[in-house]
Nucleic acid binder design. Structure first.
Lengths: 221, 221
DNA sequence: GATTGTGAATAGATTCACAGCT
DNA sequence: AGCTGTGAATCTATTCACAATC
C-alpha cells in the first residue's frame, strides 16, 4: 500500500516550472487550499474530487487536472488525503517559507491590510509600513510603526523584501512601484487604479475595486 | 462626413445581451474607460487603438475587437473620439445611472470602501453601512451613520438596493449574503475569503486578498 | 465499485492578416 | 496613407470519456 506525503512526480512529464503555469490555475490551487483547510477544521481526513466540487461549487475534473499537473496527489478508487494534500499545496504556493513584504501607504486600505495580514497565520511577514504624510509617520498600526517613505528603499534592500503592496493614490503608484523594483522587490500587489509599467521579471497583480464594481454594474444593465 | 456620438449598431449581428459577454471583456472595457478618462484629463481628443495600446500596455487588436462587439465606435483611417467613446463606455458599463449600494461590515475594509466610494465621482451610491457590533453602530464614517445589521433587509428593500458589498468575517458572509439576496440585491461584491452559494440570477464577484498574495507567492517559488 | 489521472474533443479567448472606409 | 472592423487561424482552457489503479 502506497504511503501519503511522499512527493511523487508525474510518470514522464517534467514538473512544470512556475512560469508556464497560468495564473488561473494558481488561483484555483489557492482556492483548493482554502477548502482543504476548512475540511481539516471539521476533522475530515479524506475527500474525493467529486465531494470537493459539490461542496464548494467547483469542477471535479478541473480539480483533478489541476492537481495532476504537479504530481500524483491522490489514490485511485479512494480520493485525496486532506492533511497531506493541504501540506503539498502550501509548499507549491510558496507558503513553506515567509515572504518579507512591505506595505506602501498607510491610508484606509493600507491600514486594513496591515491589520489583516498582521493578525492571521498568513505567511507574509510585514516588515515595513510606509507613508509620505508626516501626520501618519510614527503612528502605530497593527504593531507596526509607520515609517517615512524615504526609508522604503533601504528597508526593502536590508530585509530582502520580495513583495511590495501598493496602497497609495493613483498618482503616486508608478513612482513607488519603481522604487520598490529598484530596491529589489520581485512582486507587486497594486491597489491603485492604474496600469503599472514594469520590467518583465517583476510580477504585478492589480486589485481594482472600481473595476470590480463596474463589472457588476455592466451585468445589472 | 459621419458624426460622432450617434449609437451605430453593428452591421448585421445583434447587440450582445449582457449575459453573453464574458467578464474578461467587461473588465477590459472598464480598463479602457480608465484610460480614456486619463486622456481626457490631458486634453487629448482623438486616439487610435495603436496609441492606446502602447501607452497603457494593452493589445491594439483586442481593443478594436472588444469595442466592435458593441457597435462601430471609431472612424476608419482616423481613430476614436475620446469624449464620445468615453461616454458610450460609461453607458455600456451601466454608469449612466446610480446603483444603490450597501456595505455590510464597518471594519477596516468596509470603512476603506465607504470612504473611497463616498468620495470620488463613483456612480455607486452608498445608501447604507451596516455592522453587527453595537460598539460601531451609530459611529459616523464618510458621512454615513453605521446602522445595526437587523435593519439591513428593510433598507435594501426600501432603497431598491442592487449591489451588496460584503466586508464581514468569513463566518458571517454566507448569512449576510442570503439576507441581501432575499431582500432583493442582484449583485454581491464579496471580500470575505469564502465561496458564496447563490441562486444563478445573482452575480457574485469575490475579491480575495490572500488568494492574490498566494498567486504572487507561487511565482516567487 | 469507486476514483484518480489523462488523451481526445470541445469551447473559449487572442492574435493575425487583410478587406473596407475616410 | 492610415486606421477600423472582422473572418480565419492560432493559442489556451475546460470538459468528456475512459483506461489505470486501488
Amino acid at each position: 500500500m502506497r504511503q501519503w506525503g511522499l512527493p511523487q512526480p508525474p510518470a514522464d512529464s517534467p514538473m512544470p516550472s512556475s512560469s508556464d503555469v497560468s495564473p488561473l490555475t494558481v488561483n484555483r490551487l489557492s482556492v483548493y487550499l482554502r477548502c482543504l483547510r476548512r475540511l481539516g477544521e471539521e476533522g475530515i481526513e479524506r475527500v474525493s474530487s467529486q465531494q470537493l466540487a459539490q461542496r464548494f461549487q467547483l469542477s471535479a475534473t478541473q480539480i483533478r487536472k489541476d492537481l495532476a499537473r504537479f504530481g500524483e496527489f491522490g489514490i485511485r478508487g479512494v480520493g485525496y488525503d486532506v492533511p497531506s494534500l493541504r501540506a503539498r499545496l502550501e509548499v507549491l504556493l510558496g507558503l513553506g517559507r515567509l515572504h518579507p513584504t512591505v506595505i506602501v501607504g498607510a491610508g484606509n486600505i493600507g491600514t486594513a491590510l496591515a491589520r489583516f495580514l498582521g493578525a492571521g497565520g498568513a505567511r507574509f511577514a510585514i516588515v515595513g509600513l510606509f507613508d509620505k504624510d508626516p501626520e501618519r509617520v510614527g503612528q502605530e498600526i497593527a504593531g507596526l510603526r509607520v515609517r517615512p517613505s524615504h526609508e522604503l528603499a533601504a528597508v526593502v534592500r536590508r530585509e530582502q523584501v520580495e513583495i511590495g503592496i501598493l496602497a497609495v493614490p493613483a498618482a503616486a503608484a508608478q513612482e513607488n512601484c519603481d522604487a520598490l523594483v529598484a530596491a529589489g522587490a520581485r512582486s507587486i500587489l497594486n491597489f491603485a487604479p492604474v496600469r503599472l509599467a514594469v520590467v518583465p521579471e517583476v510580477r504585478v497583480k492589480t486589485v481594482d475595486l472600481l473595476i470590480s464594481l463596474e463589472e457588476l454594474g455592466f451585468f445589472l444593465g
